[in-house]
Amino acid sequence: MMSTVNSNNEENNGEDMSITTPSTSSLSSVAANHASQRQPGNAPLGSGLEARGIHAWFGKHHALENVSLDFAAGTVTALIGPSGCGKSTFIRTLNRMHEFIPSAAMAGEVLLDGKDIYEAGTDVTKIRLQIGMVFQKPNPFPSMTIGQNVLSGLKLAQIKSPKNNDDLLEECLTRAGLWTEVKDRLDAHAGGLSGGQQQRLCIARSLAVNPKVLLMDEPCSALDPGSTLRIEDTIGQLAQTMTIIIVTHNMQQAARVSDYTAFFLSDGGPGQMIEVGPTNEMFSRPKDQRTENYVSGRFG
């Protein structure tokens, strides 16, 4: 899959939309290509993740209004939209990272396997073990070695993996597409890796605690095109076994990796979810005029 995409859109791999404004037709062909190649996930999947009526505030500022979205198990959903539309805020409500920002508040329900993660008495650390997160900027722990970074989640959450550490290390790094590059220097410090390698290390780190859902908040925006493709490749592999939700500014990326796409927009007020649908439909025949304008590159 990657090779065809690569040759078609080599110059569009970066994140900066101002450089390229892809036409709707090329996006929809990429999306259709992805859809045709996509194998349904075969993981022991639960019922996925479901957001119901999410609102978010920062102090008095209403950042997100009444967003409801279903993420079926084993699918990849891309959240797209211009800056400030609330998509990053939304993704951070899905694993309760939103509440770390002082003055942040939210309303609504997020159901993981039918159970609200905001229910009183819920152990939030357990929630974050099941819903992992990869951030915009690669953030490995610089005081730890590569191996320690991968296993850090086990130590931080004080849990034991059923596998032994060496096997787990190899498995996670392989799934993140990093094993062959680092297998001879697992004891080296993580700071010596390139940005793309660091980001894949962060993905491997998230995998070690065996999450059901992986949230990715613009995971490639700080990376070069080559590293971006490696990560997208990794996402394709991971989608076999888990539910992935990815925020991206890059519509090409949404077309390449996602099964579903949700379009967020703020008209000056709180951000709203305008439209959601299968990715190839979103890029070929969106229902809403605003979505059409955005994916055809008329604004944003």
């Binding site: 694993n95 953030n139 959450a157």
Partner: peptide, 14 residues
Amino acid sequence: PLDRIQAAYALGAT
């Protein structure tokens, strides 16, 4: 750095 703190929390750290 906030990103390291968030990384730890996102991994289920107390």
